[in-house]
């Protein structure tokens, strides 16, 4: 079997932070950690090439970088791909996750990476990528490499993959059924008794943790304040110039409405793929209420309406992405002295 390895500029032995802007390049054979992988694979797998890209370059040009790396990998027609391990390096983790996800999706071959559980790449890619759990630093290199090799070989040979704790990968958050040794009632009472005694117990379904935001006190003088409109209902200028995805959005748009009194169906539509678009397309103000906001502005209920609105699609969009959009939009709003925001969802 043939493998291609993905590394950043540092592990690819090009240089440190000063080389982080490096565009993707490819070297024949193995480099850096690749030598360890080669040793572990032995004769079973040949490492045909190593693709190297700077962390900053990747982070700043995610789509472009992914595409370039993908095409370099494809040139070698590998049977499997390894990326990293990235340990606790955030930008590197995101790059490894993106590369593995793209390889699995577009080339249909197994791709495995390794990260420390707190690496932001874990949150972003755990559902789509096998990520082996590593230590925070290179101290854990050999252990990580061993697990990565074992797992990727199983995947390549289409052997059944065991549980996360058996194989060493981070749970992907995918729920799978199996038959337990005891019925649910019996397990429940055993669990309750352990909990009551203060002993350790493992819930079979950990509650998802939501990022709850405490509301601010009401805006004091709304008649003097600037209001902005934000929507996850996908209302975009016709033709969707920013190509916001109909689900699992990776981007949002910022659109000038300073000269508009309402959104005309002639020029606006929804990009959202998760609801019946008939009524939104008939009258986009139903989802992005510019008409009502202008009324309030005229009536003096609000000081003024912010000249731009922001839109994305909230259909299966990950919490991590949504958080990133929110952070960026909030910064923009604060600079413009916006004091209140109406967010519409669908």
């Amino acid at each position: 079997m043939r493998a291609v390895l993905y590394l950043n500029q540092f592990f690819g032995q090009i240089g440190a932070e000063d080389k982080a802007d490096l565009e993707p390049l490819v070297k024949n054979g193995s480099v850096g950690p690749g030598n360890l992988f080669r040793e572990l694979f032995g004769a079973q797998v040949e490492i045909a090439a190593t693709v190297i890209c700077g962390d900053n370059y990747f982070a700043e040009h995610i789509d472009e970088a992914t595409e370039k790396v993908l095409s370099m990998i494809a040139d070698y027609a590998p049977d499997l791909v390894l990326a990293g391990p990235a340990f606790n390096a955030g930008r590197y983790g995101m790059a490894c996750g993106a590369v593995c996800e793209a390889v699995a999706k577009h080339q249909g071959i197994p791709a495995v990476t390794g990260m420390f559980p707190e690496n932001p790449g874990v949150e972003s890619f755990r559902k789509t990528v096998y990520i082996v759990k590593t230590k925070a630093t290179t101290v854990g290199m050999r252990e990580a490499a061993e697990k990565m090799c074992r797992l990727v070989l199983k995947l390549a040979r289409k052997e059944p993959v065991g549980l996360p704790e058996e194989e060493g990968y981070l749970p992907r958050g995918l729920r799978r059924n199996y038959f337990a040794a005891e019925n649910g009632a019996s397990r429940a009472i055993t669990m309750l008794l352990r909990k009551m005694k203060g002993e350790t117990f493992t819930t079979e379904y950990p509650m998802p943790v939501f990022d709850r935001v405490a509301p601010l006190p009401p805006v004091e003088r709304m008649s003097k304040a600037t209001l902005a409109l934000v929507t996850s209902g996908g209302i975009v200028p016709k033709g969707n110039p920013d190509r916001i995805e109909s689900s699992s959005a990776t981007r949002y748009g910022k659109y000038d409405i300073s000269a508009l009194q309402r959104l005309s169906p002639e020029f606006y539509e929804t990009a959202h793929g998760g609801y019946d678009p008939t009524y939104a397309n008939e009258d986009p103000n139903r989802v992005m209420p510019l008409d009502a906001a202008r009324d309030m502005e005229r009536e003096g209920k609000i000081g003024r309406l912010h000249p731009y609105y922001y839109a994305t699609v909230g259909n299966g969009t990950s919490v991590a992405r949504a958080g990133q959009f929110a952070g960026e939009i909030a910064k923009d709003l604060i600079i413009s002295d916006v004091r209140a925001v109406i967010i519409t969802s669908t």
Partner: peptide, 11 residues
């Protein structure tokens, strides 16, 4: 009511 043995886990 916990009648059966089926359960689910994270993978």
């Amino acid at each position: 009511l916990g009648f059966e043995f089926l359960t689910a886990r994270d993978e």
